[in-house]
Design a protein around this nucleic acid. Sequence first.
RNA 1: GGCCUGUUGGUGAAGUGGUUAACACAUAGCCCUCUCAAGGCUACAUUCAUGGGUUCAAACCCCAUACAGGUCACCA
Length: 557
Amino acid sequence: MTRKDLADLMFPNVNMTIEDYEKKYPPRKLPEGAIVTRCAPSPTGLLHMGNLRSFVIAEKVAKDTNGIFYLRIEDTDGKRAIENGIKKIIDAIHNFDIHVDEGVISETEQKGAYGPYIQTQRKEIYDAYAKYMIENDLAYPCFCNEEEIEDTRKNQEGRKERIGYYGKYAHCRHMSIDEAYDKIKNGAKYVIRIKSQGNYDKRIVIDDLVKGKVVFPENDIDHVLIKSDGIPVYHFAHLVDDHLMRTTHILRGEEWLSSTPLHLELFKMFGFKPPKYAHLGLVLKIDDDGSKRKLSKRKDPEASLSYYHEKGIPVEAVKLYLMTIANTNFEEWMDHNPDKTIDDFKFSFKKMSASGSLFDLEKLLNISKNYISKLNKEEVYNYALAWASEFDSDFAKLLQKYKEYSMAIFNIEREQKKPRKDYASFSEIKNQIWYMYDELFEENLEYHFAKINDAFEIEKILNTYIDEYYEENDDKDTWFNKIKSLTDSLGYCSNMKEYKQNPDKYKGSVADISTVIRVALTTSTMTPDLYEISKLLGKKRLSERFNRAIKIMKKIG
RNA sequence: GGCCUGUUGGUGAAGUGGUUAACACAUAGCCCUCUCAAGGCUACAUUCAUGGGUUCAAACCCCAUACAGGUCACCA
């Protein structure tokens, strides 16, 4: 028996050689310096912040260099697969406005000449490469079962030796071709393991784009390459796919750093040029007990992407945040170039922090607040409506019914040099402006008057104001002068400085008078500019709301 | 336990032999002001995990220690 016989027995259906695939997927014709990256999620759960971060960076790097960014689905783990996994990935990518040049673009479609881009559809390709390895004594079938592996491990632990399937512990590595042939012929189950050529006493240097030079012992573990179900594990798929798809840069989490020696060994065995690696520091989260740990989808709602969607935080803001933690000079650049977008920024691996960073929701919210403040009223309206349509249909109806009016509300103190910054997300808009809609206002009966809360005093202030002072067409200065006149006429002080110096000389100040008007109009002591609000509400509604407030206050009285 | 990575304020961090240790978020105070938001100003690390060393000079170089994280699957 020869290796060729064994290989033929193991892979009876392979009729393409690795040279054939080399021709079928030739090197890409791209401009000098173009970077090919990919996002390669596995459909085993919802996408989270960590995924999104590497996608955003990978997309950015490819775009910056006129390269290619593609989506590959790593679905080799049948056991952990979730229902509609691929659809969920596509949806999330779509939601976050990430655009791939090729790869999987919908549940049923793929685009590009380097496919298929779903790993379970690439079995025959992996088989050809695995067969090559068997033929060339670079891999071997292993018949050890779980118990045997477990025994070896315990044995190694007991003797304080390095754990793993290697050297003398690699039982099947030393099996004769004939024996292996017979076992397979008789239907024995097996996996395929790499026949590692590495020497643990020798060092290998990984020149990582973000970590710098990292020295590891060479890999000498005979890792599993193909599982007993014939499907490859990540390590082998990474070799075949990223070589054949001509990926130039691998962006992945730090958790992959320690298996990179194995990956490098695989590339070396085939004589392929290895890609450049960028191992990204993990996104951490501070726990209740003060310790740092990996951001977890289960424990941290803000780790899942749906959280931002449900909160109505604009995707641009999330990307802005991710970019500020990805490139340490981004935030400053953005400050100096307020009119530019992420697209204008040049990403650099050198400006990536090597350490993991804490995920700071507070900061993200602040970025979101600034982002929203720069939008115009139509944009805010469209975002708010899109959010409400999905999560608050009653509010969505109001927004649609009063489109122009709503936009006018959103425009209060907006399109100006120093706009109001009061919304960090679209889900909080309703809580801030609900009183502008009669439908919502009527449901609320609680008034939060402050200093002046005597029903008769309130009645006097409001009636005098509406009867003798308020004119719908007054400009802002005239309006405020009238408020001051009203203030003085009732024995309050219209000059705040004067009032602060002699508070006892007056019944109160213009601030107290304004508060009465404000609360009567909105029930709240905190609102945007009173003048703008009054104008939007109109005199008729002012009068109605004043009467209603007086009535309710008297009743409580 | 072995191997690897990281450690600058409450948080994100700039910084690579000589700086008042940037900047941003958060927090506190003041100012502005009809409230809120915003804005302006100010405060917030005598110190860069700890201990040694090299040097005229160290957060930056070297060594050790501590702590945190990752990895050691027929998961990715």
